[in-house]
Amino acid sequence: MKTDELKKVASQVRRDIVRMVHGVASGHPGGSLGCTDLLVSLYFQTMKLKTDGTDSVVFDMSGTGEDMFFLSNGHISPVLYSVLARRGYFPVSELATFRKLDSRLQGHPATAEHLPGIRIASGSLGQGLSAAAGAAYGKKIRNDSHRVYCLMGDGEQQEGQIWEAAAFIPHRKLDNLIAVIDFNGQQIDGPTDVVLNNRDLGVKYEAFGWKVLHMDGNDLDDVVTTLAKAHAAGGKGVPVCIIMKTEMGQGVDFMMHTHKWHGTAPNNEQLTAALAQLDETLGDY
């Protein structure tokens, strides 16, 4: 898909995100908006996904013979749900059920309701990279050369388990795994540097044995190019970690440059103001 087409999808996904969190007056729009360009690029351009032979995707829990994506920072579920629906994993209309009783779209991603596209629950932070490592290891054992992607938050890097996985993955030469860190510098209680300084994440991952790439997560050209570079770097015995600079709330001016919209939903007026900045390109759900 060309960049201008990806941009159209991204605009619609951002509309979905603000409408979903507004619809239930809860959820996490900030990080979702910041990571929209990455997820759109992954699902509409980068990842090799199982299809029915046409462009229609087919969900297979095993992920055999296709690339897999794991969302470790599960609170940005709105962006994942929107992208999965827009890619065709489940009806777009189901986005209206987000966080509501009896929905398959739980507040944080879960498998219990069998939502196509979700392979493991996430939300309690720090666990996704380990699950992705297991999936990547499984692909190695099964001789499946496809890639495993894992998105984490930068605040999440404060969890100890991340560093257990960060040591394990290069040690086991899981060069089919590509980790992405959403480096937006914000977390619930304020700037990450103030709450608990991660210092230089790139240096840390390099020291743990990863190849580190940097990209602007809100520049679709850069995202597509860097993901291709990361894919090409695979298979050489070293896993790749992409430090992805993003702006929390990207695409909605009053949600940017603050941590205020980490876990707050817009009211009616704010929704109107936000939607005015985002083109309805694929039709609202």
Binding site: A136, E164, F168
Partner: peptide, 22 residues
């Protein structure tokens, strides 16, 4: 799979391994 003294990661890796039918 030797996981070292890192039990939390071991549980996550185990969960991920199940996907491919292991």
């Amino acid at each position: 799979i030797q996981c070292g003294i890192a039990e939390a990661n071991m549980i996550g890796v185990a969960a991920g391994l199940t996907l491919s039918g292991l």
